[in-house]
Design a protein around this nucleic acid. Sequence first.
DNA 1: ATAAAGTGTGGAACGCTTTTCATAGCAAGA
DNA 2: TCTTGCTATGAAAAGCGTTCCACACTTTAT
Lengths: 325, 325
Amino acid sequence: MANIREIAKLAGVSVSTVSRVLNNHPYVSEQKRAEVMRIIQERNYVQNSNAVHLSTGKTMVVGVTLPLVNNQYYSSIIEGIAGEAARHQYNLMVCQTNNSAEQEQSILRLLKNKKMDGLIMCSRANGCETIDEYAQYGPIITCEANEAVFVSSVHIDHYQTFRIGMEYLLGKGHRKIGYCIGRKNSFNSQHRKRAYHDMLQSAGVTPAPEWAFENCLTVQDGKDIAHRIWQMNERPSALIVSCNHIAAGIVKEAGRLGLRVPEDLAIVGCDDQPVGELLEITTVSSPSSLMGKYAFEMLYDRIVHQHKEKEERELPPLLVERGTT
Amino acid sequence: MANIREIAKLAGVSVSTVSRVLNNHPYVSEQKRAEVMRIIQERNYVQNSNAVHLSTGKTMVVGVTLPLVNNQYYSSIIEGIAGEAARHQYNLMVCQTNNSAEQEQSILRLLKNKKMDGLIMCSRANGCETIDEYAQYGPIITCEANEAVFVSSVHIDHYQTFRIGMEYLLGKGHRKIGYCIGRKNSFNSQHRKRAYHDMLQSAGVTPAPEWAFENCLTVQDGKDIAHRIWQMNERPSALIVSCNHIAAGIVKEAGRLGLRVPEDLAIVGCDDQPVGELLEITTVSSPSSLMGKYAFEMLYDRIVHQHKEKEERELPPLLVERGTT
DNA sequence: ATAAAGTGTGGAACGCTTTTCATAGCAAGA
DNA sequence: TCTTGCTATGAAAAGCGTTCCACACTTTAT
C-alpha cells in the first residue's frame, strides 16, 4: 500500500507537507491541502501507525493487568478505564496475569519496550521494588493501595468499607457480628479485619473467634459458612461479608436451612456485583467503574505531563440498604 | 536508552549480529553471542517494539470489539480469547463500541493502519459490506453468524439452543410452553423463535400467543413476566428464557408470588451466567469462553497462513439440568 | 523605508530493527 | 585439486512518518 512518499510525489509536494496535512498543522495553503487530500483519498492511504509510534515515541495504548477478565469486579474497572481512554483516543491492552508474577513481568516489559505508554494494574503479583523499577519506563497506577515510591494508586478504602458496614450493623443493635473475608493475609483483608475489631472495641464488644471466616472465595464457601453457622450453639446475629457472591451463597443456603434472613442472620456485603441487587443484599458498594475512570485520568495526566509524583486517591464506599438487614 | 547500534558498537560487532542474537538466529559464534548478551545486560537494553513492528509488519496484537466489557457473556468470550492469545505471545486490544457503527469503524481502521494483526468482533454494528471491505487489511472473525464473504465466524447455534431446551421440556411432558427473548427482530431471536415454533409444531401443539414474551432485557423485565403469568387465567407450565438473568428475575418474583418453581412453572435458561448456577436454574449452556478460544485459533491460523477462506464454526450448546425443571 | 514577524514549503536527519545480499573462511565430497 | 556447501559476519536497504532547520516570500509595525 501507498506510503507518505508516494503521496507526496503524486501530489507534487514534499513529504513534510503531506505530514502537515495529515496532522492538521497550519501553514499549508488551501490549494495544496486539497490536492494532498485528493490523492490520499484516491490512493486510499492511511498512516502506518507503527511508523508513527516509532517516530513520536508514543503508542496511544495503555495496558491493564488483572488476574482474570471474567470477573465482575475487574470488568467493571475496565469499563471505567475504557470509557475514559476512548475519550482521549487511547486504546486498551488488556492483560490477564492469572496472578502469576512472571506473566505480570512480561507485561511490565511491554512498558519498557514501548508497546504501551502507561500501565494500570488492577492487581499485582510482584513486589513494590519490581514495580518501581519499571515505573521509570512509563507511568504506572495501581487500583489498590501500594507502598511503591513512584507508583500512584486509586483505591477503595477497605477499612472504611468495613467500618461503614459495622457501624450500620451496630446501629441496628447487633452485637454478635461475624465477618467473612477472602485471602487471609492480603493487604485488603488486613484493613478489613482491623476495621472490624476497631468498631467492635469502640462498642465495647468482644467478638467470638469462631465467627471469623477466612479464605472465603467461592459461592460454595458461602454455603459452607451458612452450614457452620446453622450448627453453632451460639450464632452470630449478623455477618459482614467481603464479596456479594459469598453473601449470596450464604443467603441461599440459609434459606434452605430455615435460617431466616435478616431475622436470624443479617448480612451486609461489600461490593457492586449484580447478584447483590438480584438477591437484594444490603451492601457497602465500592465504585469500581469510577475507580477505573480515575485510574485512567491519573495515568493520562502523567503520560502527558511526564511527572512521577506519587498520589494516592481513596474512594469512599457507599451503603446501599436492601433486604438482608 | 540504548539502541541496537550502541550495543553493536560496545560489543564490537555489527548491528546484524546483535539482531541475530536477539532473535536467536543460528550462525552467531558462541563468543560473540556471549559478549553481546553481556553488553545487553549491562546496558539494560530491550528492543523498541515499535521499530520491530515497523520492520516486520506485524504487531502481535489482536483486537476485540464488543458493545461493553462489563457483561458476563462478553467477558467470558474475552477470557477464552485471552488465554489462547497468551499461548501464542499475542496481546489483546479490547475495544468497546457501545454498539455505535462509528466507533466500530474507528476500530476497523486500526486494522487498516496496522495497529493490529487481526480482529475478533463479538458484536457488530456495521453492515457486512463494510466489514468485508476492511477484511482485506487483515483477518476478521465474528462471534456470531455473518453473511460477509471474507469474514469467518464461530458462533453458538441459537436454533439448536432453543431446540434442545424445547425438546427437554416436551420430553418432561410439558405442552403449555412459553418463551422469553431479547430484541424482537435480531438475527438470534429469529432463530430462537423458529426453533420454538418448529418444536411445538412437531409435537402437535399450538402455542398461546400471550405466552410469548419479547424485548426482555433486564432482571426487572423478568420480574414483570412473573407477574403477568401469575395473573393469567391459563398459565404456561414452562418457559424457555434466552438469558439467565431474566430467568433469575422470574424465579425470584415467582417465589414471592407463591408460584412454585418448577411445580407450577418450570424454567429453562439459555446461557452460562453464574447467576444460573447460584439460583440453580436449568440452562442450555452456550460455551462462550470456548467460542473465544476458537475465534482466536481461527484468527491466528489466518494471520500465520495469510489465507481468507470463509469458515463457519457452530458450537453445540449443552443442557445443564438444575433445580428449575 | 526598514526591521520584525508571520506564512508556506522543502530537505534531511531521526526514530530503530530486520533482512537481503555480499564476502570470506573452512571443511567435506568428487 | 577443485568444487560445493556451510558457518559467520558486516554493509546497506527497506520499512514509514515526524520534525527541526533553512530559505523565501509577505505583511505589519516602527
